[in-house]
């Protein structure tokens, strides 16, 4: 691994300045489970790592039934699933954070880091998109927000400009009769990269007979995690039925733009999008019905 400088500021403004000073040659260090591997393998090179784990804003995890969830970009996965109120309100997010790596990785890796790493297969990203998460991005000068589906721009690339960093994420409070789920397919049962991942969230009517709205997001089938608007639209206003689920799955399959690589083929991935969309929707509907 090439040499770099390590700084660990305690205040957000200092961190922003430390990042801005080095532009593209600086990288934020949260859990480190991606960046350290990439630096070691020579896939990325930096002059400075800015460890943000001592900064309060980036480590905030708070849930309020009216305001929703504030999830600091460096909060490790385990804190998300071990905080009871969060686990109860966002089972779809819990699905994802409990799948990132194994126990050791979940002890370090953060949802924000998963997003910034911008792997097409990042497990938390389809879940965030399905839940309507908003990213709060700051630079020394300004702060801006964007929906999670707009954050990744290409494999390993994000909207972050040199000098900007992701501070936290906001997830709206779960609507009444809503439910969400994230499912992925991997050849092993753990410690694997998603061949396909599907995040789904639904809001049902009071009778639990119809979809009020739905959001479906896909991982590992395009250069970035993908919000499939057509799949959500195929469900809105429809009866909760296998037929409507099938229509959404078809829309998801049509939207997928997978490639063939060592982890899967185009055909396999497209097929799995259908299978997993159906399964994720069924699970989300079940959760909404139990609500």
């Amino acid at each position: 691994m090439r040499s770099f400088e390590y700084v660990a500021p305690r205040v957000l403004s200092e961190a922003l300045a430390a990042v801005a000073e080095r532009g593209e040659r600086a990288r934020v260090l949260a859990g480190g489970t991606d960046i350290l591997v990439q630096l070691r393998a020579g896939r990325r090179q930096v002059d400075r790592l800015v460890d943000v784990k001592a900064i309060p804003e980036v480590n905030e995890l708070s849930y309020d039934p009216h305001r929703g969830l504030r999830l600091g970009a460096a909060v490790p996965c385990y804190r998300v699933y071990e905080q009871g109120s969060v686990a109860q309100a966002y089972p779809g997010l819990i699905d994802a954070v409990s799948l990132v790596g194994g126990t050791q990785i979940q002890g370090r890796a953060s949802v924000g880091g998963n997003l910034c790493n911008a792997a097409p297969s990042g497990d938390t990203i389809p879940a965030l998109i399905a839940l309507g998460a908003v990213c709060i991005v700051a630079s020394p000068a300004t702060t801006r927000e964007m929906p999670a589906e707009d954050f990744c721009t290409a494999p390993g690339r994000t909207v972050l400009q040199p000098g900007e960093m992701l501070v936290n994420l906001r997830i709206p409070p779960p609507a009444r009769r809503s439910g969400a789920a994230y499912l992925r397919f991997i050849p092993r049962n753990e410690m694997d990269i998603a061949v396909v991942g599907v995040g789904a969230s639904v809001v049902l009517d009071d009778a639990r007979q119809r979809f009020v709205s739905a959001r479906i997001a896909l991982g590992a089938v395009a250069p970035t995690p993908l919000l499939v608007k057509a799949a959500g639209e195929a469900l809105a206003g429809q009866d909760v039925s296998e037929r409507s689920i099938e229509a959404a799955a078809a829309a998801a399959m049509a939207a997928a733009r997978p490639i063939t690589d060592m982890r899967g083929t185009v055909e396999q991935r497209r097929h799995l999008v259908g299978a997993l969309t159906r399964r994720a929707l069924r699970r989300a509907i079940q959760r909404a019905s139990e609500e």
Binding site: P187, R188, N189
Partner: peptide, 9 residues
């Protein structure tokens, strides 16, 4: 990661 030996699971 990608040479998938069996895990305990």
């Amino acid at each position: 990661l990608d040479y998938r030996m069996p895990t305990s699971l």
